[in-house]
Design a protein around this nucleic acid. Structure first.
Lengths: 140, 140
DNA sequence: CTTATAATTGCAATCAATTGCGATAAGCCA
DNA sequence: TGGCTTATCGCAATTGATTGCAATTATAAG
């Protein structure tokens, strides 16, 4: 129950509560290796607990984002994807607008820009798990 | 009727048609100096032509994007903004997550990244009128 | 000018996501 | 253990955006 303790203390520190719904939702996200959508989380939980509302899923995802336990990315196709990120290397994605392929990208690629914007404009960018759109080598 | 001719030929070249709705929609966008939302375009046109449907606005915006006559940007706040871009300098925006301020940014800032991704991954990014989120100097 | 045909429109339904609200229950204290 | 406070939940309604479809209409051909 490592992860649960972690969630519990993370919540308590900020005055939030540990509820069965939140446990179930985080559990589904943790047991998924890659990305998952709000709808998929909802239907996975509903299999065992039919009363969960989709709005609770969205509110919990918002919360887990604030606690830095998950990342949110709009990979195109109109659906937002979520991913458990504790213990994983931070990264971005290149998404091909034509074939939909996604390529992982280390964060260091964008770090020069982050530094430049901080120096020049005093602006601190949020470059966390971006989706960068374009055309992949194969589709060019 | 310069701009209209331009629209007309741009449409014809790709097999599209020039309709009153499209003329009215583009007209509203052109007469706006900055950003405008789909809802604002719709209500502006509806003042003189009450039958225009919001779906037609969205479909036309999609078309004008394809023709490179306008740019689309999600500036946060959940609403997508559009801008007439013919004859204007290409740019991006820094958007402060706290105070909402937006700062214009020349495209050259991101060009090194564009080149790097093309060299390293053969990936050609779409960096057109981006919204880059973070915290401005004032809010840090 | 008239007709044909395919693009386009308006409408209604739908989708992903968000919000207000009254009911419920998690966590704290006695 | 039992009661209190307030965060959280489920529900229903709403928002911004998209889509399927039948009716309409811009354009090309006769």
């Amino acid at each position: 129950m490592d992860q649960l303790d972690e969630l519990y203390t993370a919540l308590r520190e900020t005055g939030y509560r540990l509820t069965p719904q939140r446990m179930m939702i985080l559990d589904v996200i943790r047991h998924r290796t890659g990305h998952i959508t709000a709808e998929q989380i909802h239907s996975a939980v509903v299999d065992t607990y039919p009363y969960l509302d989709i709005s609770t899923v969205y509110r919990t995802l918002e919360l887990l984002k604030d606690l830095h336990l998950i990342s949110e990315t709009k990979l195109g196709g109109g659906v937002t994807q979520y991913e458990y990120k504790v213990g994983k290397k931070p990264h971005h994605h290149l998404v091909c607008r034509k074939c939909g392929e996604t390529i992982s990208l280390g964060v260091q690629v964008l770090q020069p820009v982050e530094h430049l914007l901080l120096e020049e404009y005093g602006f601190q960018v949020d470059f966390d798990h971006l989706a960068i759109f374009g055309r992949c080598a194969h589709c060019l």
